[in-house]
Amino acid sequence: MKNWLLGYLILGLVGCKAMFVGSSPVINQWKKNGIHIQGRDFRICEDRTNKSMSEREKYLKNKNYSELTPEEIDERSLSLSRLDLIYYGCAYELGYRFKPDLGWCWEGSFNMRMCDKYKKYRN
């Protein structure tokens, strides 16, 4: 009886964490041998992304979001999408695959858009 109670308690706490803290970030869903991007591989992809940034993109990234005009917000959004593809393309080349945790891609969640965007990197 105590084992069942302990099991339900653990499941309840995990569910509460997901509900109140939120799901883990998309970078933690890229895994190689069960481990997400970190260390030297993270730095390699980060450097590749930073080298591909134009001066305008660096300016938009460093400017306070509240000070951006609507046109700059759209420009920054497109820039971030492009840089994400460069970063995760690098991760894919290094052997990482998009393998989201169980339940991370639930229908109707914000993560669902990310799952659609990166589904080509699953294999």
Results as ranks from 00 to 15, higher is better:
residue 1 M to Y: 09
residue 2 K to L: 11
residue 2 K to A: 12
residue 2 K to M: 09
residue 2 K to Y: 13
residue 5 L to K: 15
residue 7 G to F: 07
residue 8 Y to N: 15
residue 9 L to A: 07
residue 9 L to Y: 01
residue 10 I to M: 08
residue 10 I to P: 04
residue 11 L to A: 08
residue 14 V to S: 12
residue 14 V to N: 04
residue 15 G to L: 06
residue 16 C to V: 05
residue 18 A to V: 09
residue 19 M to K: 04
residue 19 M to Y: 15
residue 20 F to R: 12
residue 20 F to A: 08
residue 21 V to L: 10
residue 22 G to T: 14
residue 23 S to G: 06
residue 23 S to Y: 07
residue 25 P to W: 08
residue 27 I to A: 01
residue 27 I to G: 00
residue 28 N to Y: 07
residue 28 N to P: 06
residue 29 Q to N: 09
residue 30 W to M: 06
residue 31 K to P: 03
residue 33 N to T: 02
residue 33 N to L: 03
residue 33 N to G: 07
residue 37 I to D: 00
residue 39 G to P: 03
residue 39 G to S: 10
residue 41 D to C: 10
residue 41 D to L: 03
residue 42 F to H: 08
residue 43 R to D: 09
residue 44 I to C: 05
residue 46 E to M: 02
residue 47 D to G: 10
residue 47 D to H: 13
residue 47 D to S: 07
residue 47 D to L: 12
residue 48 R to Y: 03
residue 49 T to R: 14
residue 50 N to T: 15
residue 50 N to E: 06
residue 51 K to L: 13
residue 52 S to N: 04
residue 52 S to D: 09
residue 52 S to H: 10
residue 52 S to G: 08
residue 52 S to K: 00
residue 53 M to R: 02
residue 53 M to I: 08
residue 54 S to Q: 11
residue 54 S to G: 05
residue 54 S to K: 06
residue 55 E to R: 14
residue 56 R to L: 12
residue 57 E to P: 05
residue 59 Y to D: 11
residue 61 K to I: 10
residue 61 K to H: 07
residue 61 K to W: 02
residue 63 K to E: 08
residue 63 K to M: 15
residue 64 N to G: 10
residue 65 Y to G: 05
residue 65 Y to L: 11
residue 66 S to I: 05
residue 66 S to A: 14
residue 67 E to G: 13
residue 68 L to I: 12
residue 68 L to G: 08
residue 68 L to F: 04
residue 70 P to R: 14
residue 70 P to N: 06
residue 72 E to L: 09
residue 72 E to Q: 08
residue 74 D to H: 12
residue 75 E to I: 09
residue 75 E to V: 04
residue 75 E to C: 13
residue 76 R to Y: 04
residue 77 S to P: 12
residue 79 S to M: 03
residue 79 S to R: 01
residue 79 S to C: 07
residue 79 S to A: 08
residue 84 D to F: 14
residue 85 L to Y: 14
residue 86 I to C: 02
residue 87 Y to D: 10
residue 88 Y to N: 00
residue 88 Y to V: 01
residue 89 G to L: 01
residue 90 C to V: 02
residue 91 A to P: 01
residue 92 Y to S: 08
residue 93 E to C: 01
residue 93 E to Y: 00
residue 93 E to V: 01
residue 95 G to M: 01
residue 96 Y to K: 00
residue 97 R to Y: 01
residue 98 F to R: 01
residue 99 K to P: 06
residue 100 P to K: 00
residue 101 D to M: 02
residue 101 D to I: 03
residue 102 L to G: 13
residue 102 L to N: 13
residue 103 G to H: 05
residue 103 G to M: 07
residue 104 W to T: 00
residue 105 C to P: 04
residue 105 C to Q: 07
residue 106 W to A: 14
residue 106 W to R: 15
residue 109 S to N: 05
residue 110 F to H: 14
residue 111 N to G: 07
residue 112 M to G: 10
residue 112 M to F: 11
residue 112 M to W: 15
residue 113 R to L: 13
residue 115 C to I: 06
residue 115 C to P: 05
residue 116 D to I: 15
residue 116 D to L: 15
residue 118 Y to K: 00
residue 119 K to H: 12
residue 119 K to R: 10
residue 119 K to F: 00
residue 120 K to R: 14
residue 121 Y to S: 02
residue 122 R to M: 09
residue 123 N to W: 05
